[in-house]
Design a binder for these strands. Structure first.
Length: 282
DNA sequence: CTTGGGACCTGTGAGC
DNA sequence: TGCTCACAGGTCCCAA
């Protein structure tokens, strides 16, 4: 799924069509995605205006005029398709879509129709009071945004202190730092020269400072490229991100390492593939 | 408390 | 061509 750069790319694509507009009509085509929709989901949205579309980690947050926040998570395969007759009647901003996976349709006043598609249905939506947002899970325990000033080597050192977990797993834990996923963790560890199996609590402070910097760099570069397109990620206008061409290790098993020429290896850590260079990462 | 494994669900590509 | 298997960008839940 979308990790932080992909979710932020989606947010930027969606914001011009949603911010300042109200939901004229909402179609909820099934009772659940990963979780059941909240009670009276459609009724609570209808007529509400979207004041602002934010992102926190991998979550999209639509702040509504009703005082509630619409929380949207894309899971692995969630995506939004925009159609806007104010721009070009009948024109669809979208890659090819499968109607069977169009689960929610937002009809906005003055034009746009925004459809949420999600083949695997690992995504979900929820509604909470804006004041309660920070106190509701998972936001209550969530670590800092990696691109914010709150995130640096000192934060990692404190978060990893006395932890035995491999650093790969620790970086995927959204309570330590929020927004990284499998791709960018692999890429950041490679750039920092740190082995994914190293115990997180035993990585030296200078190396964590380097790691925090590499995390910021790789996420920033991915954002500039419009995110990564692997299988089905597409922008809201149907265009594709292209950062995947700059992966150094992810999905490159047996290919030569850009640093030493040796083969990139794959291993499985807590059920997920890790790609790394055994020679360059210690 | 921490950690790892399985579960959720569908689609796709590789190999036979 | 068609089958089967492994695997996929995430996160929650539970057992050890």
């Amino acid at each position: 799924m979308p990790e932080l750069p992909e979710v932020e790319t989606v947010r930027r694509g969606l914001a011009p069509f949603m911010e300042g507009r109200a939901f004229e009509r909402v179609e909820q085509r099934r009772p659940d995605l990963r979780f059941p929709f909240p009670p009276r989901f459609v009724a609570r949205l209808t007529g509400a205006r979207v004041e602002r579309l934010d992102r926190r980690a991998k979550y999209l947050l639509a702040h509504l005029s009703t005082g509630e926040v619409l929380i949207m998570h894309l899971g692995m395969t969630g995506r939004f398709v925009i159609e806007d007759r104010t721009i070009d009647p009948g024109f669809v901003h979208a890659a090819s879509t499968n109607e069977a996976h169009a689960h929610v349709v937002f009809h906005l006043k003055d034009g746009a129709r925004v459809t949420y598609h999600d083949a695997r249905r690992f995504g979900f939506m929820d509604l909470v009071d804006a004041e309660a947002l920070e106190d509701t899970g998972p936001f209550d325990l969530m670590g800092p945004e990696p691109l914010s000033e709150d995130f640096d080597g000192a934060h990692l050192a404190a978060a990893f202190k006395d932890r035995r977990q491999p650093i790969k797993a620790a970086l995927l834990d959204q309570r330590q730092v929020a927004g990284l996923g499998n791709i960018y963790v692999c890429e950041a560890l490679f750039r920092a020269g740190i082995s994914p199996v190293r115990e997180s609590g035993r990585v030296s402070r200078p190396r964590l400072v380097r790691l925090a910097g590499e995390i910021k760099t790789v996420l920033s570069e991915a954002l500039e490229s419009g995110g990564s397109t692997l299988r089905d990620f597409a922008h809201t206008d149907g265009s594709l991100g292209y950062f995947q061409h700059r992966f150094k290790v992810y999905d490159r098993e047996d290919e030569p390492c850009s640093g030493c020429g040796g083969p990139i290896r794959r291993l499985v850590q807590s059920g997920r593939s890790t790609f790394y260079c055994p020679r360059c990462q210690k």
